[in-house]
């Protein structure tokens, strides 16, 4: 009997109980409740009594959609996380509600993600991707469909990276993992998962653009301008924090102090990864920030370049 055949690859985002400290878990719950409360209020205004059947069936769709995968290479497969697609097609509020239902059911029924940490999981897989993907999507919504699709690929990828960074930070601050290792490891793994998500989101979206373009016109109006601001802020935070976070002072050291082990501490533990720095500035925070900005500019430049190239080719 197939039970939950699909989650192995996304498991990294479903934090189980015990991996986040109670304080952080409850803080995340508070934020998640706020976001879901707002989503319920706004979605109710739009959909009224239709909301329940619509959101319920679409949540079941995300679950079923995660079963459809495609072989990538070496036995791995790409598949959908779904948050980006839901936010673009259904609008951000309904998208958050749908993802909340999916995460709740996965946690309650399959123990895929914990109960105490469910708030964090809702933020990582529901709220953050909606902010990043939908917020940025609003910026390109009036463009030609090809531009939009390429942009959505980048946004969907970014949204997975944002979620991964969020989880890595949660683990780091909880003292469950070292920033120095958790951040690059989570970002590295999700850089690949994000490619799968980006490809499949774009493919599904281009199908919908061809067959039901009116659907996308409706959802584009579903969120206010605030989403653009939120999306841009979260994205900037991700770009700035990704290189910085791996050099945060470890939550682990607080744990050690708490346990009284700090007195017996030996020399600095073995360092697996060199810090992100630019030689000219030395090993300062400024240097890592600059490294982050340079990285972001390169990515942005590449994206813009590709878009330009495709546009001129189309005009020619």
């Amino acid at each position: 009997m197939f039970m939950n055949p699909i989650f192995a690859d996304v498991l990294w985002l479903h934090v189980p109980d015990g991996f986040l400290s109670p304080g952080i878990a409850i803080f995340c719950w508070a934020l998640a409740l706020l976001a879901v409360g707002l989503a319920v209020r706004n979605a109710r205004e739009t959909f009224d009594e239709r909301l329940v059947p619509l959101a319920g069936v679409m949540a079941a769709f995300i679950f079923a959609g995660q079963m459809i995968n495609f072989p990538v290479a070496g036995g791995t497969s790409g598949h959908l996380v779904g948050a980006s697609l839901a936010a673009i097609v259904l609008g951000p509020w309904l998208g958050i509600l749908v993802m909340t239902a999916v995460i709740s059911l996965q946690g309650l029924l399959f123990q895929d993600g914990g109960l105490l940490v469910m708030g964090a999981n809702i933020l990582a897989m529901g709220v953050i991707p909606a902010l990043v993907t939908y917020g940025l999507y609003r910026l390109v919504v009036a463009r030609a469909w090809r531009t939009r699709l390429i942009a959505v690929a980048a946004f969907a990828w970014l949204s997975v990276m944002a979620a991964a960074l969020f989880v890595a930070l949660g683990l780091g601050f909880s003292g469950t993992s070292s920033f120095r290792l958790a951040v690059p490891a989570m970002l590295g793994i999700h850089a690949l998962i994000g490619v799968g998500e980006a490809l499949i989101t774009v493919a599904a979206l281009s199908f919908i653009m061809r067959t039901r373009p009116t659907l996308l016109a409706e959802s584009a109006e579903a969120g206010g301008k605030g989403w653009i601001v939120g999306g841009v802020i979260v994205t900037l935070l991700v770009l700035l924090l990704s290189p910085l976070a791996s050099s945060f002072p470890d939550g682990l050291e607080w744990v050690a102090e708490e346990n009284g082990f700090i007195h017996t501490a030996l020399d600095a533990p073995y360092q697996l990864l060199p810090d992100y720095t630019i030689p000219f500035f030395g090993e300062t925070a400024l240097s890592t920030i600059i490294a982050g900005i340079v990285g972001a500019l390169i990515v942005a430049g590449l994206t813009i370049g590709v878009v330009r190239l495709l546009r001129t080719r189309r005009h020619a």
Partner: peptide, 9 residues
């Protein structure tokens, strides 16, 4: 796969 998911949606 994307077309299948779009169809399902």
């Amino acid at each position: 796969a994307g077309s299948m998911i779009g169809q399902l949606l």
